[in-house]
Amino acid sequence: MTTVEMPPARSVPEHTGSRLTRALGGAVLVTWTLWLLWGLVLSPADVVQHESVRLFYLHVPMAIMSSVTFSITLIGSIMVLRNGSVFWDLMAGVAAEIGVMFLGLVIATGAVWGKPTWGTYWEWDPRLTTAALMFLVYLGYLVIRRLDMDPVVRARRAAVFGIVAFINVPLTRFSVQIWNSLHQETTISLTDTQMDGAQLTSYALGMLAMATFLAWLLVHRFRVAWLEHAMDESGLEKLIRDRRAEGAANEPGGVR
């Protein structure tokens, strides 16, 4: 904010980067290097899961980040209904898009982990089932956001869906416990896994790496969404001028 070389007329670059994103980008590079070093090299293989435990250092942070993004969508949706905020509308949409991508990868990496561990890519386990449903529900949310409708109306409707959809997040988060309490069966859970220090470090680094990456990505993706919004707005100004010109071409008083 206190730069010296900033000229009086602000120079906004022709991309979505800024000092903020460069700082975040640097943090991403550092955390990712450390995370991959620990996760893939320094930490030992698991006694039970062997090398495939390393998938967890990717899988779990992404799962948690997708819950974070859907929470941002929830907050954004509430703000849209409260005051019609454009910022929060765009933020809600952007967060959901990133969340769906993360969740898709969570499901994919989970399947890849399941094959060597359970012997199958897909298991009708409560966590998997609810995660798949959550994926579909938020996919529906993204479809609503792309409907050809008045932007204000669409923002409000998407917001309602964004709030209703959030029920899936706690449902998925606690699915194992919910079904456990219902069925009194034991499911493989993370707490059973013996974790040594390096494994724990790998987890922590994975969380840090994914969190900084999410922050970096959110800023860039939001700026793209804002640019699209600005394009629509400036396009609208032109359409209004054209529309008025169309009226002026018809001499007033002429009934056609």
């Binding site: 609810t130 449903l133 529900v137 996919l139 479809v143 409907l147 869906f161 209703v164 449902l171």
Partner: peptide
Amino acid sequence: LLLAVVAGYSGRDTLGPLLVLPSMAP
């Protein structure tokens, strides 16, 4: 509720099920 979300949209007949079915699975 979910059909009201897509009310007035011409493709609601196909979008409706996509919204209703996964939401109602639980």
